[in-house]
Design a protein around this nucleic acid. Structure first.
Length: 573
DNA sequence: GCCGTTTTCGGCCCGACTGTTTTCAGTCG
């Protein structure tokens, strides 16, 4: 990160806002999209786009042309973008929040402004309380009620609630199982963001192959998991589940299931690129199949959709319009992303020695039953008294128990002496070097002082990485949702240091953590850092949380070679 | 505003659904 220049997020936010304001003004929609695409491209970039722009090289990024580059340079040199400031003068920026309300949008937001003078959420709230919303042309009682409801909800992002994969995925599987049991259903797949491995999603998308959509949709509406029907049509239904999560089920004929699955998997940006490419080839593409001058058709399997366009099928986790379509068109095959089956063992689990619920022997049996060849026992260290963290004395007694148990395994399975050692508030380590020497593997994690400023947290991580005894940084940002957002650590500095020392960064699969997330994990891999995929299990069942870690690793583009515990023990550096 | 199997201009993905209309605009994904 360079000296005081605007960061990628600041640039992206500016372009996104300018796009939103232009949309309110009714500007040409392709111009609006150009700003929004540019914003996303900058947001995704790993290098400083401000630096690139000053060097005249930002236009090498897709979607960044001379105009956007000039505006980035202007932001660097003057601290603002004149076109954005002018747009803010013409159109109240508060309208952007109004346009983001569910069922509103740029058109209705502008109508509310011109008819009622409601330029921000507070003004809109007053107008709603006065019953004036239906005075606006194009707004009837239903839309007015929807707006009033959204305004009454507490929280800053009405209608934009995210749900973690730890909740959404089991729910999706329950719906999918119920659908699979229906006699008129021949295939069911979970699609959408969940299929793409996202750690948080807005809703659950499920696609179904059937020749009797009416019966299937009625079955969904009557499901015990359903609270109410939100929307329904001839081929799709959207329901609110009793967990509060929106679930959307789309149906299509079996012979065109591939088209439906591809469409519903997305992402929206990926699909748009794909259809633009198709159109250049003279093919119109939709969830129903393809159409060209000679006729129309469809494909039962997703591969057929891509093959028709001369493309390899990208792994769903990579379908985010980050260059995967160009990759799919090249001679270079996609990597084989890591799977759960690649994991040879786990090294971050807890037992009754600290705050786990099972003995070492029970966890070992469960790990062997999962096919693991090793299990690292990593109970907490002494500073974490709340979890009965181990003193050096208890550590040595735990080692004795591990030695005894290891002597009893006749199949080559091995328990490893590990620790999840606290990084103290001053950046010091909770155990002395001579004790650390005796562990097979040391995970260093932050559990206290999480309210410190991000640069202090980052400094503590860097201090731990610098220790020759620390092998892994555990759950690097410390997030544990919904209670705690992660620290805004300087991930670039952490990655650089970890790469220099060969320290691993953990992808903690425990659903409230999912830490690192996929964006940071991608940066780690780009920076030459390998990852540890963990369950952080405190019980037998929780060993399965590695699944969520694997999802994140895949979304980051990781192969088995990038994952430390996809290799047998002992690991080679 | 960006970009190229349409290559420096003329295009720019596609459809479902809802509510407000009275044939369609707006929103959403």
């Amino acid at each position: 990160m360079s000296d005081g220049r605007p960061g990628n997020r600041e640039i992206a936010d500016a372009f996104a806002l300018l796009g939103d304001l232009l949309a309110l003004e009714g500007a040409q929609r392709h111009r609006i999209r150009a700003y929004h695409r540019g914003a996303e491209r900058v947001r995704d970039a790993t290098a400083s786009v401000a630096d690139l722009a000053v060097a005249g090289r930002a236009t090498q990024l897709p979607d960044i042309g001379p105009t956007l580059q000039a505006k980035i340079v202007e932001l660097v040199e003057t601290g603002s973008i004149a076109a954005l400031e002018a747009a803010k003068e013409r159109t109240p920026p508060g309208l952007v929040q109004i346009a983001a309300l569910p069922g509103v949008g740029p058109g209705r937001a502008m109508a509310l402004w011109t008819a009622l003078g409601a330029g921000d959420l507070d003004a809109l709230r007053a107008a709603a309380a006065a019953g004036r919303l239906t005075d606006v042309p194009g707004i009837g009682p239903k839309v007015a009620a929807g707006i009033a409801e959204a305004l009454a909800r507490p929280g800053a992002d009405p209608g934009d609630a995210l749900v973690g994969a730890g909740i959404a995925l089991p729910l999706a599987r329950a719906f999918a199982a119920s659908l699979a049991a229906h006699p008129d259903v021949s295939r069911v797949e979970i699609a959408g963001g969940l299929r793409r491995g996202k750690e948080d999603v807005h809703d659950v998308d499920i696609v179904v192959a059937t020749t009797a959509p009416d019966a299937v949709l009625a079955h969904v509406a009557a499901d015990a998991l359903v609270d109410r029907v939100v929307a329904s049509g001839a081929s799709t239904i959207a329901v609110a589940s009793n967990r509060g999560v929106r679930v959307e089920v789309s149906t299509g004929p079996p012979e065109r299931f591939g088209d439906l699955l591809q469409h519903a998997t997305g992402s929206a940006a990926h699909n748009t690129r794909l259809r633009e490419r198709a159109k250049r080839m003279g093919v119109s593409l939709s969830q129903h199949g393809w159409r060209d001058d000679d006729g129309e058709g469809g494909t039962p399997d997703e591969d057929g959709v891509y093959a028709r366009l001369g493309l390899r099928t990208p792994p769903p986790e990579l379908r985010e319009d980050r260059g995967e379509i160009e990759w799919a068109a090249s001679s270079q095959p996609f990597p084989r992303l890591v799977t759960q089956a690649d994991l040879v063992g786990q090294v971050h689990v807890h037992t009754t020695w600290s705050d786990g619920t099972e003995s070492i022997a029970t966890m070992a049996d469960a790990a062997r039953a999962r096919g693991h060849r090793y299990l690292g026992i990593s109970d907490h260290s002494r500073a974490l008294t709340l979890t009965r963290g181990l003193t050096p004395d208890r550590v040595r007694r735990q080692w004795d128990e591990i030695d005894r148990l290891n002597a009893g395994f006749d199949d080559g399975f091995r328990l490893l002496k590990c620790t999840e050692m606290d990084i103290l508030e001053d950046g010091g380590l909770d155990f002395d070097d001579d004790l650390l020497e005796g562990f097979d593997l040391v995970i260093a994690s932050i559990h206290s002082g999480l309210a410190q400023p991000a640069d202090r947290i980052t400094a503590r991580l860097l201090a731990a990485i610098a220790s020759p005894h620390v092998d892994v940084i555990g759950h690097p940002t410390g997030r544990k949702r919904p209670a705690r957002a992660g620290a805004a650590i300087d991930i670039d500095a952490v990655v650089e240091a970890a790469a220099a020392t060969g320290t691993l960064l953990e992808v903690n699969g425990q659903p409230p953590r999912q830490d690192l997330d996929s964006a940071m994990a991608r940066r780690a891999l780009d920076g030459g850092v390998r990852l540890l995929v963990s369950s952080d299990a405190h019980s037998v069942e929780a060993l399965g949380y590695v699944e969520y870690g694997i999802r994140i690793a895949r979304r980051a583009g990781a192969t088995a070679a990038d994952i430390a515990n996809a290799a047998p023990w002992p690991w080679t550096a």
